[in-house]
Computed example of a mutant assay.
Amino acid sequence: MLGGVGAITRYLERVMAQARYDLLGPGRYVGELPEQGLRVEASHLEAAREALREALEAWLLEALRSGVVPSGLEGEGDPVRARFFALAGEMWRLAQEASGAARLARGQEGPKRKPASLEEWLQGLGLQLVRRPQPEDEEKEKVLTRLALFLGDRYPSLEKLYERLKQSLSTKRQFELSLAEASQDEIANSTQFCTMLKQYALLTSYHYKSEDRRLRAKASTEGWVQNFLTGGWLERYVAERLRKFLRSKNLPHEVAVGYQVALPGGEAMELDVLARVGERVYWFEAKTGEFQAHIAKYAGLKKVLGLSQKESFLVLLGMDKARAKELSALHGLTVVNQANFLEVFQEALEGNGP
């Protein structure tokens, strides 16, 4: 039986050998294990290494408690090791069944089995995968993520610019925006964002006249640019903010954008963002414009996915919190805006423990 314990020690050492460390600035070291979704910061290199080791041990403990043996820790070729993990998995399964029976006796829902991946979870629901998330060019990904974070984090001061930009996308014509009565934040953020868009050719033209505080610009007509600016950026923003938050909490997770599935009736539906955290799956739809024609469909899809209201989010750009609360109650979804979705998600995460 000690062979199994030794296998765990060797597994930790092997994974730690793959860790990446970077110096972010004076007294700021970061340690990462991307495959496990772990990231820590510390004041010096040795502290970062120790913190990352502790985070990995906590991650492994949680995985084993949930009955999942991480890749590389299986018992192939070693009967003692295989028996160790088989017995551990069986003990955990029996404990879950006992807990589930107790819950059912009290009229509560039994625990959900932790999926090995989001793809396995979707297939377990009997849904046909029409399209899977495809990796983009790494440099392109970095640029688009940077733009999405800039817009999402500063949206209140960029709202007027964004609305004019969206209007012009449908006409494919140059647009103008007067910043004569705008605050300094609005002016600075609007001109900086347009400069970034022009730098990466998402705008084909841009000019700001400081004398009368008026800017003129024209967006590219390329399809991927149109898709990004009309709504793709918000999906990316939600996904990236989720990843950063979950990494900061050292929680095992998987976040994916753009799974397309065929529903039981044959209708194809794209899932904007899916997040798996431990044994829970959360679903996020992101809309930058009209949502009324879609909300009933989302409420129905929530049932197909077998998710609760606390696991189903509709992120509406600029949505008023009071109205969001009313929409949540009416449609059985958690309606939020781009500024507070992470806070509400954290509350759901902490309140959904076993």
Results as ranks from 00 to 15, higher is better:
G300Y: 09
N337D: 13
L94T: 02
G332N: 04
Y208H: 08
L64P: 09
Y237D: 08
V15I: 02
L161W: 10
G232P: 06
K166D: 00
V69P: 00
G67A: 10
R106L: 11
P264T: 15
T288I: 03
A268R: 11
A88S: 10
R10C: 10
R28I: 01
S43F: 06
V281W: 11
K244Q: 13
M319I: 03
R131E: 09
T288K: 15
L2I: 07
T204K: 11
V143W: 15
F85K: 02
G75V: 04
E176H: 09
Q134K: 15
E285T: 11
A47V: 03
R49F: 03
F345P: 07
A339Y: 07
E254K: 07
V69R: 03
L118E: 12
L60F: 05
Q199N: 01
A116I: 06
R154I: 01
S183V: 08
E109G: 12
R106P: 01
E181K: 06
G72Y: 10
E235P: 09
L118F: 06
A82E: 14
L61D: 11
L127Y: 11
L316I: 08
L158M: 11
K140C: 01
K140P: 05
T204V: 11
L104F: 12
I295T: 03
G351K: 07
G266R: 08
L330W: 12
R243F: 12
R154C: 03
Q167S: 12
G37L: 04
E186V: 08
A63K: 07
F228L: 11
A48M: 05
V80L: 12
M16V: 06
G278S: 11
L263Q: 12
